[in-house]
Design a protein around this nucleic acid. Structure first.
Length: 222
DNA sequence: AAGATTTCCAACCGCCCGAAT
DNA sequence: TATTCGGGCGGTTGGAAATCT
């Protein structure tokens, strides 16, 4: 093929911009034949003039079976807020607990809802404040209202309560320890946990509309 | 009705890490 | 051990759509 060096194409040969239905079909066909991965060889095998990175992104964020379309549910939003308070901008990690949602989607959701205008530095500062506020308020509320509730954060032998989970999480010093703890919490766990605790609606008292000045909470800077 | 502004989201960019050589 | 390469990740951008004035 013209413009190829071995199986690789010169960078300027890659197509960019929005994907066409025809390109999607080619990529789907490729994945059917070869499975996910080996993205750098998609162009050579399928005739797509797209980089491996572009193919992977298209597949993961749009074509992959099982992806949910449409708005995030309140449950999913709650999970995002909660996990973000624990882990920060670990979008791919958060996405693992939201089956059918992509890291890109979650990242966009967060930006849309929690990063408002202003300058980047102001945004960062505000974001830190929000997270710190949310975490502290969250712990306090949890202590008061849910001390007897079984949080689905599990270690090898026990089912821990929510505050234990937070404590275990924050006391895990090494990356591998943290990863181990992270992995012990499944998306299903979180989802079912959320279904139960959201029934009486008390989460909305402090998780939703941050900064809108709920009567029972400090008013956040706008 | 029309132009301006804001929101949303698909896609790209650059960096990092681990595996292969 | 050093280098190369592919894949994954978070940050950012650009443009279409929606909303506002």
């Amino acid at each position: 093929m013209a413009g190829m060096i071995g199986w690789r194409m010169l960078d300027q040969e890659w197509r960019k911009g929005p994907w066409t239905p025809e390109e999607d079909d080619l990529l789907i066909e490729y994945v059917k034949m070869h499975g996910e991965g080996r993205w750098s060889s998609v162009a050579g095998c399928s005739g797509l003039k797209r980089s491996g990175k572009s193919c992977r992104l298209r597949w993961v964020n749009y074509l992959r079976p099982g992806l949910k379309k449409g708005q995030l549910t309140p449950q999913e939003e709650g999970i995002i807020i909660e996990l973000h308070a624990l882990w920060g901008n670990k979008w791919s990690t958060i996405a693992r607990y939201l089956p059918g949602r992509t890291d890109n989607e979650i990242k966009n959701y967060w930006r849309t809802n929690f990063k408002k205008k202003k300058t980047p530095s102001q945004n960062r500062q505000k974001q830190k404040l929000k997270i710190a506020f949310r975490r502290d308020h969250y712990r306090q509320e949890v202590n008061e209202k849910m001390n007897s509730f079984v949080f689905p954060y599990k270690d090898d032998n026990n089912i821990c309560k929510m505050d234990d989970a937070v404590a275990v999480k924050s006391s895990s010093s090494t990356a591998s320890e943290q990863q181990q703890h992270n992995q012990s919490l499944t998306g299903q766990d979180v989802a079912s946990w959320w279904d139960i605790v959201s029934e009486d609606g008390f989460w909305s008292e402090f998780l939703w509309d941050l900064g809108n000045g709920h009567p029972n909470q400090p008013v956040m800077e706008k």
